[in-house]
Design a protein around this nucleic acid. Structure first.
Lengths: 204, 204
DNA sequence: TAGTCATGCGACCACTTGGTCATATAGTAT
DNA sequence: ATACTATATGACCAAGTGGTCGCATGACTA
């Protein structure tokens, strides 16, 4: 985590450093990211950035943390207190949240995607050892409840379906970000509902 | 593509170089891959590898090509001549093929995943400009036929569903590779069928 | 034996990497 | 004015990067 010197900076300067970090790490993988480029963009000297952060991984952790913090801000009441809520309503909220986050924080989103895509990287392992479990788990709990309530058929493989639903979340956000023409809110809702219908009823 | 000197090598030596390339590029991204490490593993000199390849990207293209070639070998008769075949049968074949390829060629698979995950990388753009279109398209065609035959309901968004089905292919292979305990063929078939049932009928 | 040719080799090149450190500067408190 | 503290700086470091090149080696030919 950043040293106190970083937080002593004027907000303006601090934001400039933050933006430079985000710009670099959203565009390049951890290994390929260059501190020389960062300090050039931030318009500070090489020595200065090491007054704010211990080292490269410290800078990276700071950004990953920003992703988590920002993502939490997007959580809706339903997601925070989901007892007895219809699973499909919950999944819809999750999907909408995922898309909105990506659209409104494209660089944090890119960084997160890049980060999640290389789970074998030592940096991933180190950073995630300090963080919580996967997103699959939460879907698992809700699926189980939904089965008890009869909303979902009992034969499904909960672990597997959780994983599918969770990864579709990412797929969906990626789909939106790729065809950037659709900043359209209605179109977004429509697609989310199409995917929900697929999960609910299939295509047959 | 490799120079003729590469093909003049004894098969043993050529394989050693190929293995070293694959080892490196399956473990590291294009930028992070190191030619020094490659020549060390292949037990040849730095100068030698530049007798076989023009440059780094040439080495990489050679491997990407190997992925495509190998993948084609896995194509089944049904996939090559899919006229009038049940969509779900086709999807099953595609999924099984994807998993088998990943299990039997884990390093090629890793390389391919890494490669596909960074579509913004200049190397991706260059390499893919010489290759064919996405996998989504093929599903689109078959979905359309399936709708005409009444196997699939007409309301679906073909482009979107194609994308989903196509990306589930990757998700499924990843799922298998992560929990490496399941080299079990029956378990594999079972999971594929579970996913097919989800796509067909949903979980409700 | 001498000449030719394909290949092997590793020192070397210019450049970038993450990180350090002695020094300079500025602001504050006495 | 003086002393102290916090911060800013960029030359510098060792190590690594992709790539080159002159020379060595060895096989085949004349």
């Amino acid at each position: 985590m950043p040293k106190e010197t970083f937080y002593n900076l004027s907000e303006e300067k601090r934001k400039k450093v933050y933006d430079a970090l985000l710009e670099e790490f959203s565009q390049y993988s951890y290994d390929s990211a260059s501190i020389n480029r960062i300090v050039k963009v931030a318009e500070i000297s090489k020595g200065s950035i090491y007054q704010y952060f211990d080292d490269k991984i410290d800078m990276f952790k700071y950004l990953i943390n920003a992703v988590f913090e920002k993502k939490i801000q997007y959580m809706t009441p339903v997601m925070l207190n989901p007892e007895g809520i219809d699973v499909f309503k919950l999944i819809r909220e999750m999907y909408l949240t995922g898309i909105k986050f990506a659209q409104e924080n494209p660089k944090l989103y890119l960084l997160a995607i890049r980060f999640m895509n290389d789970k074998e990287h030592p940096v991933y392992k180190e950073v995630m050892s300090e963080n919580f479990g996967s997103a699959d788990a939460i879907f698992g709990v809700f699926l189980k409840n939904a089965i008890n309530r009869g909303e979902v058929k009992a034969e499904i493989d909960i672990e597997f379906v959780s994983h599918i639903i969770s990864s579709l979340n990412v797929t969906l956000a990626e789909y939106f970000m790729e065809k950037n023409n659709s900043n359209n809110f209605d179109e977004m809702m429509e697609l989310v509902d199409k995917l929900l219908d697929l999960i609910k009823n299939g295509i047959s």
